[in-house]
């Protein structure tokens, strides 16, 4: 088969997986009547691209020393990561039904001791980039060529620790470290009157801030699978010694029309009607 054809098939398959992931996110949160929606839905395309294409991983060997590492620093989007790990074969999709239940391996926020395949425990925002820095330093010391990816929220990067880590990453020349910002412009409640409709994060200077800290900055439409793939596949190929940040412009609640760009759907239990409408949206929505 021609390479173009292979690539097109891969793109179609990734888009299908992203749709599956969104469906499972909604179904799981509906069943649990707890958990987050907006953030997992905005991150879904990138999580699928990472786990089904970009990252060097093996679901059969979650502790493989040479695997690429992934840290979901915005740990409240755990259900997004869990659905993708399940679809990728790290654990049975049926286990998603245990999300948030007593004794579940699928904790509300990722617990690396509970579920194989999680490279770091997160949930307190602002913390994930630092262990990523530690892994990237450690990889260089061990002579291992794995890459470390850390996904952060655009609200999360208000935390000072993120900038402590950004400074140290540049200082240690961590070109094996990639940060991904899920730039959906909405945190949980946000800044009254900051944006047009009163409740948005407004960070037009986001790229300049990372540049000033010595990072190479890439921007991408976080829902355009072809663009996401191209960007993430080559994200580590920056100037030697320079860490890379991918600013992914996304839509909070992507794929469910009534959730999109609405802060209230950050985390909210769904009614039966809302669930059905959301699933209909997702199956109808040919997300790019």
């Amino acid at each position: 088969m021609a390479t173009v054809e292979v690539e097109n098939q891969q793109l179609q398959s990734l888009r299908d997986r992203a749709r599956d992931a969104r469906r499972l996110i909604v179904e799981t949160i509906f069943e649990a009547q707890a958990g987050h929606l907006g953030g997992p839905l905005s991150a879904a395309d990138m999580l699928v691209a990472l786990y089904f294409d970009v990252m060097r991983i093996d679901p059969q060997r979650p502790s493989w020393p040479d695997r690429d590492r992934f840290i979901l620093s915005k740990g409240h989007s755990s259900i997004g990561l869990y659905t993708v790990l399940a679809l990728r074969g790290f654990f049975p999709v049926a286990e998603l039904a245990t999300f948030d239940a007593i004794d579940s391996r699928l904790q509300g926020h990722p617990d690396m001791k509970a579920l194989p395949g999680l490279d770091m425990s997160t949930g307190s925002l602002g913390q994930g980039l630092s262990p990523g820095v530690g892994m990237a330093i450690g990889a260089k010391r061990r002579g291992l060529d794995f890459r470390t990816y850390v996904m952060l929220g655009d609200g999360e990067i208000q935390e000072g620790q993120v900038w402590e880590a950004a400074f140290v990453a540049a200082r240690y020349k961590l070109d094996n470290l990639v940060a991904i910002i899920d730039h959906n412009r909405l945190p949980q409640y946000s800044w009254p009157n900051a944006g047009g409709e009163g409740l948005t994060m407004h960070q037009p200077e986001i790229a300049a801030r990372w540049q000033a800290f010595g990072w190479r900055v890439l921007e991408v439409d976080g829902h355009d699978m072809a663009a996401v793939l191209q960007t993430l596949r080559h994200a580590h190929e920056g100037a030697p010694g320079t860490p890379t940040v991918v600013i992914a412009n996304t839509v909070k609640g992507k794929g469910v029309s009534f959730m999109e760009n609405h802060y209230a759907w950050h985390a909210k239990p769904l009614s039966q009607e809302q669930r059905d409408a959301a699933l209909a949206d997702i199956s109808a929505g040919g997300n790019s």
Binding site: P65, M112, D119, M120, G126, Q127, G128, L129, S130, P131, G132, V133, G134, M135, A136, I137, G138, A139, R141, R142, G160, Q161, E164, A165, F167, V168, R171
Partner: peptide, 23 residues
């Protein structure tokens, strides 16, 4: 010896990342 600067929150996080690799 790894200098981490005056940034104690990151200091602990970096240590955690290194510990996952057996350091």
């Amino acid at each position: 010896f790894l200098e981490m600067g005056i940034a104690e929150q990151n200091l602990v996080g970096v240590a955690a990342g290194l510990a996952t690799l057996g350091f």
